[in-house]
């Protein structure tokens, strides 16, 4: 029988998982500061981490507001792409003919250059939250469609036999076997899509560029103003937001999988 790790063991393993990347971050920061100090690089070309942190603290209020707006737009887009992606995956899983006919168009979502599509959307829908969320949605849709379709199609053949043996209806097989079986795949798709949604929202805001918008607009403004330390602070904040959303979704996914499946994303029980 599998032995469940204690809360203390789990806590210490989470700390260990955090310690590695944190150490690398500190070392990189130190190397960066050393480079800037030793080579006496002009702050106009490359500000040091200390200058970036000071600049970030100075504009913390606008950074916080922008981060909130970007997060809401990205998560809104992600939510819509989860719904649309799951429904599309259901359609794809129905037959190979449907899959063959529609799959190239799903691939388009991945291959279309977001820099080209964002201005088109903004022209059509206006400079607002909706446009930003839609760019985030488009960019995060593909991983959800492909992962969920794979999950719906990769049902254990023995379990399929079991359902056929007991003369299960198509609906019973879908609800009791294929949908729960596809859930880990959907979760994995959402994790990958979360990063794309943040990137999508930032690119969308970059083109919207209004003063009310989020991190993307702030990046654009700071780059035109040539306030490099503040630009760096904004870019780092955007990166941290992506990492935070990805980590939160990973933790939530682990909880769901552990609770409902007795399994984890790493494949360990």
């Amino acid at each position: 029988m599998n032995q469940q790790p204690s809360v203390r063991q789990r806590g210490s393993s989470a700390l260990l998982q955090l310690a590695g990347p944190l150490l690398v971050l500190i070392l990189l920061g130190l190397a960066w500061q050393l480079l800037v100090t030793l080579l006496q690089v002009s702050p106009v070309l490359l500000p040091g981490p200390r200058a970036v942190m000071t600049a970030g603290w100075k504009i913390r209020d606008s950074l916080l507001v922008a981060t909130g707006r970007t997060a809401v737009a990205a998560l809104g887009g992600l939510l819509v792409s989860c719904c649309c992606g799951t429904v599309t995956a259901f359609v794809f899983a129905q037959s190979q003919i449907i899959r063959r006919a529609l799959y190239p168009y799903a691939v388009l979502l991945q291959t279309v250059p977001v820099i080209a599509i964002a201005p088109i959307i903004i022209v059509s829908l206006g400079r607002g939250f909706l446009s930003v969320a839609l760019v985030a949605c488009i960019l995060s849709l593909f991983p959800i469609i492909t992962s969920t379709t794979t999950g719906l199609l990769q049902t254990d053949p023995l379990l399929q036999d079991l359902f056929r043996l007991h003369r299960a209806t198509r609906w019973q097989t879908l609800i009791r076997l294929r949908v729960p079986g596809a859930l880990p795949y959907l979760i994995s798709g959402i994790r990958i899509a979360s990063g794309s949604a943040i990137v999508g929202a930032i690119v969308g805001e970059f083109f919207v560029g209004s003063s009310e918008s989020g991190l993307g607009a702030l990046i654009q403004r700071k780059s035109t103003q040539l306030v490099l330390s503040e630009l760096y602070a904004t870019v780092i904040t955007a990166t941290l937001l992506g990492t935070l959303v990805f980590s939160l979704i990973t933790v939530l996914s682990e909880q769901v999988l552990r609770r409902w499946f007795g399994m984890s994303l790493s494949g360990r029980n």
């Binding site: 379990l159 079991l162 043996l165 007991h166 003369r167």
Partner: peptide
């Protein structure tokens, strides 16, 4: 329908022991 035991246990990982046991009685042919 006949009872069938496969080479592997073929259990639904998201169901408890009791819910797995109940499964054949929930399906169409039962």
């Amino acid at each position: 329908p006949p009872g069938f035991v496969f080479q592997q246990p073929a259990l639904l990982p998201w169901r408890t022991v009791l819910a797995n046991l109940r499964l054949p009685c929930e399906l169409g042919g039962s």
